[in-house]
């Protein structure tokens, strides 16, 4: 039955849209909770003088390439005497996970988030290795 076929297609598309809307940011949020909250806090406010706040960070507002590299490579503090912890490397995360994380932090802490695709993140990660 032709009508049914369209209905199935419609529901399939509908399902995809719902999955994209709920699934993607959700995964980013749980990745953030698992990997970042202990240091940067749920609201991105950090710990003053020890861990930078990222809710107003230029690295999050800036080009996604830099953020991808920061997550991939981590960052040792410039002044090791005055610092206590380093930003760890998240090499063990997959490119999909890094993409979801980037989209999550951009959604939370930029006014006009430019979302990125997994392909873009994969290329960025390759370029900074």
């Amino acid at each position: 039955m032709a009508v049914n076929k369209y209905a199935y297609r419609f529901f399939f598309l509908f399902f995809l849209v719902v999955a994209w809307h709920c699934g993607v940011p959700q995964e980013g949020k749980s990745l953030y909770t698992e990997n970042c909250v202990n240091c940067h806090m749920a609201d991105g406010s950090g710990l003053p003088g020890i861990i930078p706040a990222i809710n107003a960070s230029l690295v999050i507002k800036g080009p996604y390439q830099e953020l991808a590299c920061l997550l991939y490579n981590g960052r040792q503090p410039a002044d090791t005497i005055k610092s206590f912890v380093a930003m760890p490397s998240f090499k063990t995360l997959t490119e999909t996970q890094i993409t979801n994380l980037i989209n999550y932090v951009k959604k939370e802490w930029t006014e006009d988030p430019q979302f990125v695709s997994e392909q873009e993140v994969a290329a960025a990660v390759k370029a900074c290795q």
Binding site: N38, C39, M41, G46, L47, I50, V85, P88
Partner: peptide, 13 residues
């Protein structure tokens, strides 16, 4: 401990 990379910052907060 000050160089704790896990739960200490959130507890300090």
């Amino acid at each position: 401990f000050t160089s704790c990379p896990s739960i200490c910052p959130i507890v300090k907060k």
